Simulated scan of single mutants.
Amino acid sequence: MRLLPEAVIPELPNYYRGKVRENYDLPDGRRVIIATDRLSAFDRILTRIPYKGEILTQIARYWFERTADICPNHVLSYPDPNVVVGTRLDILPVEIVVRGYLAGTTSTSILPRYRKGQRTMYGITLPDGLRDNDRLPHPIITPTSKAFDGGHDEPLSEAEILAEGLLTAEQWATVSDYALKLFARGQEMAAKNGLILVDTKYEFGTNAAGEIILADEIHTPDSSRYWIAEGWEEAVASGMRPQSFDKDFIRAWVVDRCDPYKDEIPEIPLSIVERTSDVYAQAFEAITGQAFVPDLSGATVLDRIRANLAPLF
């Protein structure tokens, strides 16, 4: 299997390295975003997963094309399976996380907080008596600060967002409306394929005209949590973790062995890496209903990307 650990292309201008993506800003206002195979969690890179960047780009494409009637998105073209060319946006400093279930393992997730006895979080009060991975009475928005340059996201409430001037009241109303509608569409379509869209994050930005545009990715296994619908009720009743398609698989492996926010991450075995790659491919097929056939053209993934982006040099 082939890997794309990074995609540094000196011929492209204005390089910025994100956690898992390489970004280049063209003079005409377009942004080139290349998805690598880096896997990020706990605010750090854990490992590299073969074909991950290609799979995520194509899953996001599937969803962008099926939600364009709900809100505008940044996509202009797909010159390569790992690449999207989009409109350059000024990213809003708030990440919009929508949750439909009491789940999660990270410090910003609601399940660990609920287990500690917290009932009010993100400005929302949850009822007593919920079990691990239970369905919430209704989807909720749990926003976090948008940490740039590898920083740590922090929980926010609507009141804090407005008081700190992170978003205007109009912007908050718009992104909240978009996010809940996108999540409803995602849950509806996932259910038809035997999946549960548990929670997801959305990033929004503004274009030159000040319009709010959906950015980054949408409803991928990296930005979302999916469970297999069959067996979910039994798992909740027995206190087991529902079968999933997301990177909680590796998260759980790491958490069982260290404190990922403080300790050095142990080397993740090749068998776990390969299994995770298979999980991403299975997720692509379950979500889209299409077989995943990797693009093996070019001597390496980077060689193929360079050839496909050569017209932009």
Rank of each mutant, 00 (worst) to 15 (best):
L46A: 04
S40K: 03
P93K: 03
I49G: 00
A41V: 03
L56F: 00
T87P: 11
G86H: 10
Y78M: 14
S77Y: 10
P79Y: 08
I96M: 15
I96W: 09
V83A: 11
V75C: 12
I33M: 15
V83Q: 11
E95W: 05
Y51W: 15
R61I: 00
R66H: 14
R66Y: 03
D43S: 08
R61C: 03
L89N: 05
L76S: 12
P93F: 06
R66N: 12
H74C: 13
I59N: 01
S40P: 02
I45T: 15
E65Y: 06
A68G: 08
E54I: 02
S40A: 15
T47K: 01
S77P: 09
W63A: 02
Q58I: 00
D80V: 09
Y62S: 04
L76V: 15
I70H: 04
Y62Q: 05
E65W: 07
L39I: 04
T36A: 09
K52W: 02
P93D: 06
F64V: 07
S77L: 13
V75S: 08
Y78T: 10
D90P: 03
R44A: 07
H74A: 15
P72L: 08
V98F: 09
C71D: 04
V97S: 13
T36N: 07
I49A: 02
D43I: 02
T57Q: 09
A41T: 03
T67R: 03
I70T: 08
R44P: 04
Y78Q: 13
L76G: 12
I34Q: 04
I70M: 08
P72K: 13
E54N: 08
L76F: 12
P79C: 09
L89E: 08
K52R: 11
I70S: 06
I33C: 14
I49E: 01
G86M: 13
L76Y: 13
W63P: 00
I96H: 09
R66F: 09
I34K: 03
V94Q: 03
D90K: 15
L92C: 11
I96A: 12
A60D: 01
I49H: 00
I59C: 02
I34A: 04
N82K: 07
H74G: 10
K52M: 06
E95R: 05
V84E: 11
R48G: 01
I34E: 06
D80R: 05
A41L: 04
A41C: 08
R38G: 03
P72H: 08
T87M: 14
R88W: 13
N73V: 07
A68N: 11
I70Y: 05
I96P: 09
E65A: 14
K52T: 01
A35W: 02
R88M: 15
D80S: 15
V85F: 11
T57Y: 01
